[in-house]
């Protein structure tokens, strides 16, 4: 009889744990619905973006014959929207949203002797791919600080080269260069957790954010960072707009 009671107690305990686990998983799957969205604007006269002389490589010059290539350090759209700003959650994240890297594979292409996109955001540990669409040789040379755990490397990508697949170990804004074409300059923005990059109009949406209170950071390569507090609940996306003022 006593044994039976013990068994019942154990069974009850197991059921409580199972129910708890079930409830928790339910909560997590509902949680992935949360979003943070907004617009990043530039206030003031956009700085002049220096033109690029590609004449040293006839392939590059020809590929850009009908456009006028220029630097992309500050890319302001017609409505004042700021492109290539990386938005990420700098405080308040915990659990799987933080510990499980995203599984999609973002692509950094070398096209017409420029980087597309100019800024590639990614999660720590997320695999990304570097491709080349060009019929001229590039070398892809990110230069992180090895003390962070991110180790610099330098690989050639001649015409028709296979993609290079890599990932980074720590959050860091990493400059990328091509030594063959010194004007080529881009960024790997490595952050922890969900992220987004603004489009040509300055709009962004960070998806897969569990409900909670967060600090969102907006990073722009030359204008620096700004932060905002947001609360994500079920339903409509939380809003966070940013304005960077011209210097």
């Amino acid at each position: 009889m006593k044994n039976l009671q013990k068994l019942a107690a154990v069974l009850m305990a197991v059921m409580v744990v199972l129910c708890g686990a079930l409830l928790l998983t339910h909560e997590v799957s509902a949680a992935t619905e949360g979003k943070i969205s907004g617009t990043v604007k530039y206030e003031g006269t956009p700085p002049h973006m220096r033109g690029i002389d590609m004449s040293k490589d006839p392939y590059c010059a020809k590929a850009n014959a009908s456009t006028s290539p220029h630097m992309e350090n500050v890319a302001v759209g017609s409505g004042g929207g700021l492109e290539n700003v990386v938005l990420y959650i700098s405080e308040g994240l915990s659990g799987p949203a933080l510990s499980q890297p995203a599984t999609n594979v973002p692509v950094f292409d070398q096209k017409n002797c420029e980087y597309t996109p100019h800024v590639l955001a990614m999660d720590v540990g997320q695999t990304f791919k570097v491709t080349t669409s060009d019929q001229t040789a590039h070398n892809i040379h990110p230069n992180p600080n090895p003390m962070t755990g991110n180790i610099p490397w330098n690989q050639s990508q001649p015409p028709g080269a296979p993609p290079v697949e890599k990932s980074w170990k720590a959050p860091e804004m990493i400059e990328v260069k091509c030594n063959i074409h010194p004007w080529m300059h881009g960024w790997f923005a490595v952050v922890k957790g969900p992220y987004a990059t603004t489009d040509a109009n300055g709009n962004y949406t960070i998806s897969n954010v569990p409900p909670g209170n967060y600090t969102v950071t907006a990073w722009q390569e030359t204008l620096g960072t700004q932060t905002a507090k947001v609360t994500v609940a079920g339903g409509a996306p939380a809003k966070a707009d940013f304005t960077f003022k011209g210097k």
Binding site: W153, Q155, S156, Q157, P158, I180
Partner: peptide
């Protein structure tokens, strides 16, 4: 292997 720290890249993949 390339010469790390310089512009000389690795050509191992190509």
């Amino acid at each position: 292997t390339g010469l790390d720290g310089t512009p000389m890249p690795s050509f191992a993949d190509n």
